[in-house]
Amino acid sequence: MNRRQLLVASLGLSTTTFAFAQDASEYPSRTVRLMVGFAAGGPQDNITRMLAEYFGKQFDRSFYVENRPGANGEVAANYTKYLTADGYSLLLAGSGAMSVAPSMQTALGYNSAKDFTAIGRVSGFVYLLAVPSSSPFKSTRDLILYGRTNKGALSYASAGIGATNHLAGEWFKSRTGVDAVHVPYKGDAEALTDLIAGRVSYAFIGGPGVIAQAKAGKLRILASSGLTQKQEGIDVPTVAQAANIPDFDVVPWTGLFAPAGLASGIVGRLNTAIMKSMATPEAKARLLAIGQFSFTDTPEQFAQYLRTENARWASVVELAQIRKM
């Protein structure tokens, strides 16, 4: 064994990992693929393409998007888990696949906190607690008082069983005593249509369409799901304040991941690129156009946030007695 091999062995590193760490300053030296678990044209795809564009400019290398849709992002996550942790295959994934699914799925196939390297959050949005404009409820308190005393009279919409706004709805119910029937749809667009028509009583729902419909007088927004983050242009109390649930904080997010074991030097370069990209006025404006805002956190902060989110959603599932799939 030569001197270099002895040094690597003493550090408990493989020669491959050592090489990655040594070459981090030259990363990337070839094309990088950014995978996303949704079809082209949706919000996560748009954010992935925006990130690929900015990364390409910063690193002077080609970053291309590969769509691997299926199971709310779980297909792409399962695929990425088994790839080489060299920084040339990355995944943009959302809280649905990385935080909610682990609490809802009994046979998910991956552990989001152990099978991936968390590089940094990229974007997020808040849900708005909304009712039809014809609703008698003028405040969150009105909704809660009615829902407590009129069993089964209310219904709430979500993007589907296991969706983040399904869990948000159940968390709201379990902490307020509201009795409401869950009506799952095949996405937020269908849920929004029926909410406007008054076929459901309320929903936690996001996106620019909600704001547009509220400004058009077709919806009434009662509260925002974020504890600190708010939807720009919407001045309403948080659910935490309005419903007296101090820890209620639902902020769906997207973040950049790699297979577990990515060298810290490469993680650092990618995280710096995220923060530089997402801090620009142009990026913020592009995100705002799709109802989102940017994040800037370190890899360590993101990894801790992921662990906290996973534990929180597992607790919500248990508290609300939601049946796992």
Rank of each mutant, 00 (worst) to 15 (best):
Met1Lys: 09
Gln5Arg: 15
Leu6Asn: 09
Ser14Arg: 13
Ala19Asp: 14
Ala19Leu: 08
Gln22Leu: 14
Asp23Arg: 14
Pro28Cys: 15
Ser29Ile: 10
Arg30Pro: 03
Arg30Ser: 12
Arg30Thr: 12
Val32Leu: 06
Arg33Gln: 14
Val36Tyr: 03
Gly37Val: 07
Gly37Ile: 11
Gly42His: 14
Gly42Val: 11
Gly42Lys: 09
Ile47Trp: 12
Met50Lys: 04
Leu51Lys: 09
Glu53Lys: 15
Glu53Trp: 15
Phe59Lys: 12
Glu66Pro: 05
Glu66Asn: 10
Arg68His: 15
Ala71Asp: 15
Gly73Trp: 03
Glu74Val: 14
Glu74Gly: 06
Val75Ala: 14
Val75Asp: 14
Ala77Pro: 03
Ala77Tyr: 11
Lys81Ile: 07
Thr84Asp: 12
Asp86Met: 09
Gly87Met: 05
Gly87Pro: 10
Tyr88Thr: 03
Leu90Gly: 01
Leu91Phe: 14
Leu91Gly: 12
Ser95Met: 00
Ala97Phe: 02
Ala97His: 07
Val100Met: 08
Gln105Trp: 06
Thr106Cys: 08
Tyr110Glu: 08
Ile119Pro: 05
Gly120Trp: 05
Val122Phe: 00
Gly124Asp: 03
Val126Ala: 03
Val131Tyr: 02
Pro132Gln: 08
Ser133Val: 13
Thr140Val: 14
Ile144Trp: 02
Ile144Gln: 12
Leu145Glu: 15
Tyr146Met: 00
Tyr146Phe: 13
Asn150Ser: 02
Leu154Arg: 07
Tyr156Lys: 01
Tyr156Val: 00
Ala157Gln: 03
Ala157Cys: 05
Ser158Leu: 05
Ala159Cys: 07
Ala159Thr: 01
Gly162Asp: 04
Ala163Lys: 03
Ala163Gly: 08
Leu167Glu: 04
Ser174Pro: 00
Arg175Gly: 01
Val178Thr: 02
His182Gly: 01
Val183Lys: 04
Val183Cys: 00
Pro184Thr: 03
Pro184Tyr: 00
Asp188Lys: 12
Glu190Thr: 06
Glu190Cys: 07
Thr193Cys: 12
Ile196Glu: 13
Arg199Met: 03
Phe204Trp: 11
Ala214Glu: 13
Lys215Leu: 09
Ala216Asp: 11
Arg220Glu: 00
Arg220Gln: 06
Ile221Gly: 01
Ser224Ile: 06
Glu232Asp: 15
Glu232Val: 10
Gly233Arg: 09
Ile234Tyr: 13
Ile234Leu: 15
Asp235Ile: 07
Val239Leu: 08
Ala243Leu: 04
Ala243Val: 07
Ala243Ile: 05
Phe248Trp: 11
Asp249Met: 01
Gly255Thr: 01
Pro259Tyr: 04
Ala260Val: 13
Gly261Glu: 09
Leu262Tyr: 00
Gly265Met: 07
Val267Asn: 02
Val267Phe: 10
Asn271His: 05
Met275His: 09
Met278Tyr: 10
Pro281Met: 11
Leu288Ser: 15
Ala289Val: 08
Gly291His: 12
Gln292Arg: 15
Phe293Asn: 03
Phe295Asn: 05
Thr296Ala: 15
Asp297Cys: 09
Asp297Glu: 15
Pro299Asp: 04
Ala303Pro: 08
Gln304Tyr: 00
Tyr305Arg: 05
Tyr305Gln: 04
Thr308Gln: 10
Glu318Tyr: 04
Ala320Gln: 00
Ile322Leu: 11
Ile322Lys: 02
Lys324Trp: 04
